[in-house]
């Protein structure tokens, strides 16, 4: 007898737990307010899709005079664990005709970068920063190799030194 009671009790218990699960999915079915989907290309116009600390790529901020902070010291290149950064320097004469070493090309391989952030942390002049760009898909892999200092840009410190020298 107790066997039969247990048999039916099992069935009832089973049905109850199944119904508990169905209640949850049913509840979400009728509450569209809970939808979490973000419709991607549409939300592009939103100002902030990603947080402002988002690690999209390594960039080198330039000011309005097209000047940056990079001295070309090469510390970032040394610290990058996977060789994503190559520094090419050149020598140009400064005010007094003395040859100084400045950055020629700060080459950054986005395709190899692991976003560890070491380059940004170690840079003695805070020349690098994180950019929030995240749409990196390209058809040609070579496009992922970027030169971070803009053409014609120069080192901020150099010109300020120049100005100081002039005044």
């Amino acid at each position: 007898m107790s066997g039969i009671i247990k048999y039916f009790a099992d069935i009832l218990h089973g049905l109850k737990t199944l119904w508990a699960g169905m209640r949850i999915t049913g509840k979400y079915f009728v509450s569209p307010g809970e939808i979490v989907t973000e419709q991607y290309p549409e939300i592009r116009h939103k100002k902030q899709i990603v947080s402002d600390r988002f690690k999209g790529e390594v960039i080198m901020p330039h000011d309005e005079n097209n000047q940056h902070n990079c001295t070309g010291c090469g510390v970032c290149e040394l610290n990058c664990p996977n060789g994503s950064i190559e520094i090419i320097t050149k020598r140009i004469p400064d005010e007094n005709g003395k040859m100084v070493r400045v950055i020629d090309k700060h080459i950054y391989h986005l395709s190899m970068c692991t976003f560890c952030g070491l380059c940004i942390k170690v840079c003695p002049t805070q020349a690098l920063a994180w950019g929030q760009e995240f749409e990196h898909a390209v058809y040609d892999r070579t496009k992922l190799t970027k030169v971070l200092n803009k053409p014609g840009s120069s080192y901020k410190g150099l010109s300020s030194k120049k100005k100081e020298a002039k005044s």
């Binding site: 979400y28 079915f29 809970e34 939808i35 979490v36 989907t37």
Partner: peptide, 10 residues
């Protein structure tokens, strides 16, 4: 559609 709505999707 049904499964999407149950799963908080569109």
């Amino acid at each position: 559609k049904v499964c999407a709505l149950m799963q908080n999707r569109i």
